[in-house]
Amino acid sequence: MIKIKKTDLHNFIEFLIKDYNVYAPADVGKKIAFKKINSAFEIRHDITNTHLSPKNVFFPQSEVMFQYSDDGLKIPERNEKPIAVWGMRNCDTSSLIMLNKVFGDAHQMPDKNMYKDPYWKMKYDNCLIFGQACNEPLSTCFCNWFDGNPFAKKGADVFVVDTCDHFIFEGVSEKGKAFLLKYKFAEEATKTDLDKIAELKKTAESYLPEKLDVKPLYNKMSQIWDEPIWDEISAKCINCGACTFVCPTCHCFDVSDEGKGKKGKRIRLWDSCMFQIFTREASGHNPRELSTQRVRQRLMHKYNYFMDNYEQYLCTGCGRCVQVCPVNLDIREVIKQILDYKISRNEDN
């Protein structure tokens, strides 16, 4: 483990910028989100969690898949430097593992010949992820329900702890260790630093909510698909897409063609299962016409279908949806409501 004085961080970031396009929490309008930075001074270190999730770094809200014209078809290639992301909390680094199972990591699937998404892979495969210890979880955080921890290193190449006056770096993956070896201006971390980290970890954990056993959620959800509980849960949902768009793990997209005359492009865009049009078919029929059906879909995808496909839940407990929901439909309460629900259906039916 090495350490760098906080006041010297810009040297490290400049060193990183030489080889990477660096994304970090920074001001975007009145909010804080991950954006490409040109200098260490743009980074917001004083934050707890970014308002928008980092998924846009690897899975942009709008991405050109190809362009066409009289000259033929042009598929975008990535000629830029690889991506490094600074300042991702555990809820975000673990979301990348989930998204990578969908877009990139075909060997996780039963069928090894599954589709691998080139647009994701060209950004994600060579990236360097700087996980950062979450010193101060928010009251909306619940990462500990989903195997997360403010100081967990999963999904990070390098793990960074902000100890007030220093940043302590630990290489996690081979890629991360190799990168740290290249940087010559750091000191070795001492026992005092390790003690400080342990202390910070303890404090951070004390901010988390009581751990909830979510293992039974999968089975419970398998049994309640046609139960009236969904009407109760969805009653106040107004079907905007705020929760899905700030979620680090929601990854549904739409494909849209924009062309005029002989020129045009095909774009991939974030979509949301909360929208009516999401499932409307060409005939006009919509299998998820009602809010109830759409709310059920989102929750089933997170806590049931994803488990079927990838053996884990599609939620990291980052709490962003809790913060933005205009009607305070709190997913933590929904989870508890489902776990507590007594199935009304007669098993013979």
């Binding site: 309008g29 928008l52 905007c240 705020a242 899905t244 768009f245 949301s272 205009p326």
Partner: peptide, 14 residues
């Protein structure tokens, strides 16, 4: 201002 819109349509839906 409007370049920051994420088109979640929360404004429309509320």
């Amino acid at each position: 201002e409007y370049s920051k819109c994420i088109r979640c349509y929360a404004c429309r839906n509320v």
